[in-house]
Design a protein around this nucleic acid. Structure first.
Lengths: 306, 306
DNA sequence: TAAAAATACTCCATAGGTATTTTAT
DNA sequence: ATAAAATACCTATGGAGTATTTTTA
């Protein structure tokens, strides 16, 4: 069932003539004849009754024609849709991020971008940094936003945001140790009740690196191990203990007077967020547009992060 | 845009691998490669990102795949539908008839046939005998039912019904010429007020032939020229005059006591109805079935015709 | 080193052509 | 006599193969 033959068939069906079909398709009449009889052999059915010099489609031809029309319609739509995709900011973007970017950054970036480009649709995946980077590397995601610089050599990345890490504590905690607002030492921290993220968490890894050899996690008084940013914050709010998180996440709670940060001069560290994509992939306009949109607008859009 | 190439593309899309696609389609990997790059040239877009030894479809591939699936679905449907048409009593029948057959015979035949074969659909055309026969000859109609034997050499036909022609008159007409129920002569007829069909009408032609040289139409006292069977009957009912028609058409009115027939011993003639189809056409099962159904059941189904 | 795709080349099946015959108007 | 399709036969493009190279995991 060859497309060229189907084309010939359709023209014959429309013009009721082999020779006229040939002229319109710039093919000879014998070529048309052979195409039709080839289709007839293939479908094992007569497509045209040759009534003298008149050519009349059989009912099998009616059936074939209606399907063939759909086929050509589909094939034409492919062309136009692919042209659109190549030339306009349109299409589906599979993006992903680790916990904080996916929950707190990407939604705002996506909202601001779709406001400008309503023909772009997103699919958003959440995972830890390793999962996201692997998916970007394998091609499952077209771009990812994660809390560490990717180490895979094939991944291109750009730093789009730096965020302070802070130690957060419930408000009543401050009152409890009344007056003790002043700077805290590492030793002070060791005595506090801690809520800690699970192994593999980027937030935890960043904290460990910041503590370096000043203190090991074993020396901390850990009250709870929790594997989600939100749950950690809820624990802090509920007074289970203190924890660390990105200022970006904590700020709204601080503004609402629900949390306080502890000032620890010995412990100042930042987290860096990278937008990353596979260096070898063919990025269509919508992806490029979203990439540069993120690079240019992230600090502005995520203003409360500072 | 070749079907084989599309097939290769789909397999690659599904398996994310050129070589596996080749194996499934019993083609070599280089063949698959060339097909894909051929499509890529044709659409002027990259279909797969070759990320190291990983093959990842681009969004253009997503678009192409969804359309290609529709294409294959359409093409498969053709096969099954044509198989059905060839082997089962199914399909669309374009039939036609001249005035009396199309209005009074074919509807009953169609109803009885579709009761047995619900997958057959009809399209019914009305015309005069010449029009219908030409349409059957040209292939526009697959079969026709007309009031005369076709003269085109390419048309096959079979006599399926003989019907008496009668002279009909309004009931009050009988009373008016009170007592005159007895046999009428040709001369009597000449003095009656007549309603006549238009030139080209089969009914009129049959009447002229029956009169032959006994009487010419010019000698008749014609009150009205009317170009439809129904309108003629309505005129007779309304008392405009007498006319001739097929007994088959007149019988219901006679049974209901709305019309009477005039007994004219010198004028006894019949009309013959022929089922006809183009001898060279490929008749699919539904057509054959309807043909033989008509040949076998017409007298029975049109019982009141006798 | 192995696995996957690209490249280079060879071959033949067939799409498409021309010339002609057949058939019906 | 003419118009249309079928038939016969020829040519050349490109589909499909094998062998090899390139690239990455």
């Amino acid at each position: 069932m060859d497309i060229r033959k189907l084309e010939a068939f359709c023209k014959v069906y429309e013009l009721r003539s082999f020779s006229k079909a040939g002229k319109e398709l710039f093919l000879s009449q014998p070529t048309i004849s052979s195409h039709i009889s080839c289709l007839e052999d293939e479908l094992d059915v007569l497509l045209f009754d040759r009534l003298g010099r008149r050519t009349v489609p059989t009912q099998a031809a009616d059936i074939l024609y209606s399907s063939a029309s759909k086929v050509f319609e589909s094939l034409e739509r492919v062309q136009t849709e692919i042209l659109l995709l190549r030339d306009k900011i349109i299409g589906d973007l599979n993006v992903g991020g680790s916990t904080i970017p996916a929950n707190h950054m990407l939604p705002r970036l996506m909202a601001a971008f779709t406001a400008k480009h309503p023909d772009v649709r997103f699919s958003l995946s959440v995972g830890d940094s390793d999962q996201i980077l692997n998916k970007v590397y394998s091609g499952e995601l077209i771009l990812g936003l994660v809390g560490r610089k990717p180490d895979q050599p094939g991944l291109a990345s750009s730093l789009i945001l730096q965020d302070d890490m802070v130690v957060v504590a419930p408000v009543k905690f401050n009152t409890h140790l009344n007056g003790m607002k002043g700077p805290w030492t590492i030793d002070d921290l060791a005595r506090l009740p801690w809520i800690m993220r699970e192994k593999g968490s980027g937030t935890r890894k960043a904290f460990e690196e910041a503590l370096q050899d000043k203190l090991s996690l074993q020396e901390l008084n850990v009250r709870a191990w929790v594997d989600s940013t939100t749950a950690v914050l809820e624990c802090v709010l509920a007074g289970v203990g203190v924890s660390t998180t990105s200022r970006f996440v904590a700020q709204p709670y601080i503004d609402r007077g629900q949390l306080v940060t502890l000032d620890v001069p010995e412990l100042v560290w930042k987290r860096e967020f990278y937008l990353t994509y596979h260096a070898d992939r063919d990025l269509f306009p919508a992806v490029r547009a979203f990439l540069s949109f993120c690079e240019q607008n992230t600090p502005g859009l995520l203003a409360n992060a500072t």
